[in-house]
């Protein structure tokens, strides 16, 4: 059984290791390692399209994860204060936001936004005094919103789990000692849920940064890093992609480890 488990771990990690190894390959081919070189990193980072896509992805991931962390935490706090029926409704919707396949989220958001824009844009144009009215279109905003949906549900879940294991005696003690609700929140609740909020943010960032399928539908004219990589892969495998993949994989692993570490922190010092 141990041999089997070792084999499974090898199965999980060898392909990734191979991509990393060949990103340092001097030659072109996967079948032969012809020498150590970082030329593909140089090539990748001097490719303006790629750098643009990377910047877009970083911006989108940061914004959607921040929004998700705020709204998700607020929702987790709010859900503690409502009746069972409201909570069940929220739970069902949040569960749906996580479980519904990305491809469905992508197309339904696309359809709804295109219809919305078809109504809003002529309306804006009729109101606008000059000839160049603002036009809503797919782009940063739609990707951020669609990514944020999954991320917010994720943060709500992670923070909600932490809240339900919160030491309620401290909260009671605090209010018995005449702390205002806000003070209680700031000095008792917030420090205890902060690791969960940070972990939620990091996982939300990772999700958004890695997502391909949702962005593929709602990106409009924008390009994110996964969309760029997907398009280049379809054109043919080049070692340049190995270099990008290595950078992305390292970033993801780092973020997930950070999130794990935050979640593992049980109680911060008071």
């Amino acid at each position: 059984m141990r041999a089997f488990v070792v084999a499974v771990f090898a199965f999980l990690y060898l392909p990734i290791a191979l991509v990393v190894l060949f990103s340092f390959n001097a030659g072109h081919h996967a079948s032969e390692f012809t020498g150590f070189s970082v030329q593909w990193y140089g090539k990748a980072l001097s490719n303006p399209f790629l750098v643009e896509a990377l910047k877009n992805s970083l911006f989108i991931a940061t914004t959607s994860a921040l929004l998700a962390a705020f709204c998700g935490t607020a929702a987790a706090l709010g859900l503690q204060r409502v009746g069972a029926r409201t909570r069940a409704l929220f739970d069902a919707l949040l569960g749906a936001a996580i479980v519904v396949p990305g491809v469905v989220i992508g197309i339904s958001t696309l359809v709804a936004l295109v219809q919305l824009f078809a109504v809003v844009n002529p309306f804006l144009a009729s109101l606008w005094p000059t000839d160049q009215p603002p036009r809503l279109s797919l782009g940063y905003g739609s990707i951020i919103a669609a990514h944020g949906l999954f991320s917010m549900a994720l943060v709500t879940m992670i923070v909600g789990t932490r809240l339900s294991s919160l030491d309620r005696n401290l909260v009671e003690a605090s209010s018995d000692l005449y702390a205002t609700p806000l003070t209680t929140f700031r000095s008792i609740v917030l420090p205890q849920i902060m690791p969960a909020v940070i972990a939620g943010f990091l996982l939300a960032f990772t999700f958004s940064f890695d997502d391909f399928i949702i962005a593929f539908f709602v990106a409009g004219a924008q390009t994110t890093l996964p969309i760029y990589v997907f398009a280049s892969i379809r054109r043919g495998v080049t070692p340049e992609i190995n270099a990008i993949a290595t950078i992305v994989l390292c970033a993801s692993v780092l973020l997930v480890l950070l999130a794990q570490w935050q979640l593992g922190r049980r109680k911060p010092s008071p």
Partner: peptide, 22 residues
């Protein structure tokens, strides 16, 4: 367990790409 979780959160695109390569 962490070693199981990490691949789950790393890009499916990149991990699938690795197999294209192999």
């Amino acid at each position: 367990l962490a070693m199981i979780v990490i691949p789950f959160w790393t890009s499916l695109l990149m991990r699938t790409y690795a197999w294209m390569y192999i």
